[in-house]
Design a protein around this nucleic acid. Sequence first.
DNA 1: CCACAACTTGCGCGCCACGCACATAGTGCG
DNA 2: CGCACTATGTGCGTGGCGCGCAAGTTGTGG
Lengths: 192, 192
Amino acid sequence: MEDAVDMRTRNRQATREAISTAALRLALERGPEGLALVRVRDIAEAAGVSPRTYNNYFSSREEAICAFQSDQARRLGQALLERPADEPLGQAVTAAVTEYYGTAEPDRAGLRMIMCTPALEGEALKAFTTAEGPLAEAIAERTGGDELFARVMAAAVAGAIRVAGRHWIERDDSEPFASILRRALAHVTAAA
Amino acid sequence: MEDAVDMRTRNRQATREAISTAALRLALERGPEGLALVRVRDIAEAAGVSPRTYNNYFSSREEAICAFQSDQARRLGQALLERPADEPLGQAVTAAVTEYYGTAEPDRAGLRMIMCTPALEGEALKAFTTAEGPLAEAIAERTGGDELFARVMAAAVAGAIRVAGRHWIERDDSEPFASILRRALAHVTAAA
DNA sequence: CCACAACTTGCGCGCCACGCACATAGTGCG
DNA sequence: CGCACTATGTGCGTGGCGCGCAAGTTGTGG
């Protein structure tokens, strides 16, 4: 049989990831202070592409740096959508979330970078908000037609994940991220 | 007694507002499509200052355009903080919010501009998030020391306001914004 | 009245996003 | 297999932007 995906798209995803990981790595090296020193040509060079190509994938350094977070949020939304439809909302949300963060802790340095660097704040919020669309869809499937309620809940869940992340990187105690996340989610799913 | 505020800061606030108002007005004229055509020099000229001065107040066009929304969020947070401490949380939130949006409807065109223009998405989210800090503080005052809960609730409330705004600008039925907002808030304050 | 501080402005530099045109490589069809 | 076709990488040029720097200007306080 032919490849699951053709070579074009495989290469495309590969370069995209190469660029974003290079961008994040460089940002971490320079630190939040010296983020302005992460030049586009550095990212491109580190990813092995031309600066012009970098710009075909991302239209700003911030976007490239936060791409991983954004993709993760997108996958989280998908995961919730693929849960059995008869599962109660709170359970489904917790399960879908734990599926990601339960097994492996997120990258602490990376998360701290994108959440504590003012220049990245906008992109970081965009990334976390990415999950709201699918989330709202999945919630609407379970609770019926109240669109407003679904969106409010989706925003609350996404906000809870974001706040949990912030707490996790601020406190240095060893409470695992999944634990904080569960507590945060419990506060919002109580309304469901 | 001396002036409540000295001339320096009065002028400063005046120019800041002149710039942001001019920026929003121009953005509305050009429309979401032609936002790229709103050049810095246009904003500066419309505000009666030099381009360099514009840049002393805002470090991007997006920031200038969304400044009003951002300021409003800041004031909302303050309003909640100044509510009587013995008022129940849900009531206080609703009251503080109604104090703003109950009397006068927000500017529909302006809100639609900053919420439906992709290039402004990041700044818009930053603006709405601005209220979370004061909100969390006010909530923590009422519910005791659970920092995580306070922040989660604050994010949920801010998210509810944002979602309500989105609903309001999407539907053209004549349900007033305050009404939608109350319904949205009811869904999250139920958890309090 | 005067020294000081805050603010504005012009200038210049480096960087960046992006349109355009061309080269190259993967793909599908006869 | 060979040949059009299309998607993608890249170089170049352009317009614009953010900001540091160094005057010039205008409140402010002693």
